[in-house]
Amino acid sequence: MLYQLFAVMAPVLSGVLIGYLWAKRQAVDTAAMGKLVINIATPCLILSALNKTQLDGRQLLDIGLAAVLVMLLSGLLAWWLAARLKVERRIYVPGVVYSNNGNIGLPICFFAFGDAGLALAVVYFVVVALSHFSLGLMLFSGRFQLAPLLRSPIAWSALIAISSQLLSISWPLWLESSLSFMGAVANPLMLVMLGVSLAGLQLSGLRVPMLFALLRVVGGSLLGWLVAWLLGLSGLAMAVVILQASTASAAINYLLAKTYVGQEEQMAALVFGSTLLCLPFIALILPLLMALAA
């Protein structure tokens, strides 16, 4: 069990490790990489990932509502904690709210609950991603304005993805294959850049990010359970919501912090810390969730 979970998470860890070791050996200029990921690859990835799924109305209501509530409640908790500790909330609020439901959540749900679990997990992932690249960008920029949003290719691609979901349009094959082809670059490059950034981090700066990593993973898990119970979900749906709510902070949070806020080292520590934390934590709760789903 632990080994299979490790096999699922190894790609994330090794991407970060490559960047970390690289930056320890020599100075790495990630300017070109960052521009490529944020302006080209991620928008393509968003468009192609959302194009592959058409959401089902009933699942959207159950799982989607649960995802929205988990985001809302975890955001409020993070806001309160950031205010108490007097740390930058533009880093820690989105860092806690937006979890890694694609890279980590989808393969684990598939591995634990099969195709039926994957279908539900995808709904959770899509709802979080849509909020991430619209409202989430405002959390990062700290202003509730539309104008700066419209300059970002990521927001544009989310807008197009939302409208094509609503109108149930799917791309022609040549466009779809181009989008997924260019989008494939985004995740690995993002992880490597995150590793590069971790190499510059002081150990003393780790305490606060670790606290928020705990909030993301353990707090998220409890909130997932609470929300699923409040909404009257049970069985597989409940298990999927809890699992998706217990995943690490999304890797792209790091890049968004670098673009919109600065202080990206703290976000890198939050992302990496929560990734390390969620591996044993999910291994711990997975037997319970599998019993719940069965």
């Binding site: 790609p11 090794s14 490559i18 690995p188």
Partner: peptide, 13 residues
């Protein structure tokens, strides 16, 4: 799994 993910960058890049 890891080499697959890292290898993804190759064709488009």
């Amino acid at each position: 799994n890891s080499t697959q993910l890292i290898g993804q960058i190759v064709p488009a890049l």
